[in-house]
Amino acid sequence: MTSLGFLYPGHSAEDDYPRIEQLLGSDVRLTVVHTDIGEDAHRVDALLEMGSAHRLEAGVEELRLAGAEAVVWACTSGSFVYGLQGAHEQVRGLAMAAGLPASSTSFAFAHAAREIGATRVAVGATYPDDVAALFAAFLKEAGTEVVAVRGSGVVTAAEVAGWDYDRVLALARAADRPDADAILLPDTALHTASHLPALEKDLAKPVLTANQVSVWEALRLTDRRVNAPELGTLFTREPIVQA
Rank of each mutant, 00 (worst) to 15 (best):
51 G>L: 06
173 R>Q: 15
171 L>W: 02
21 E>Y: 01
113 A>W: 00
103 S>Y: 04
58 A>V: 00
167 R>S: 07
154 V>K: 09
91 V>H: 03
157 A>K: 04
194 S>M: 05
168 V>K: 13
68 A>K: 08
75 C>G: 14
125 A>L: 09
103 S>A: 11
154 V>S: 07
230 E>R: 10
167 R>Q: 15
59 G>A: 06
176 D>F: 05
80 F>H: 15
34 H>D: 12
70 A>H: 04
120 R>W: 01
149 V>A: 09
51 G>H: 06
45 D>Q: 14
185 L>R: 09
44 V>T: 14
2 T>G: 05
18 P>T: 12
101 P>N: 13
219 L>S: 09
11 H>W: 03
8 Y>M: 07
98 A>Y: 03
203 L>P: 08
6 F>P: 06
48 L>N: 05
97 A>H: 03
100 L>E: 10
151 G>E: 05
98 A>F: 02
92 R>K: 11
69 E>H: 02
88 H>A: 11
115 E>G: 00
153 G>A: 10
37 I>E: 07
103 S>V: 02
56 L>N: 11
196 L>V: 14
137 A>K: 13
18 P>K: 05
203 L>S: 11
174 A>W: 02
1 M>W: 02
185 L>Y: 11
102 A>G: 11
163 W>F: 13
33 V>G: 06
32 V>I: 14
202 D>S: 06
72 V>L: 04
19 R>S: 02
183 I>C: 10
183 I>Q: 06
118 A>T: 00
8 Y>T: 08
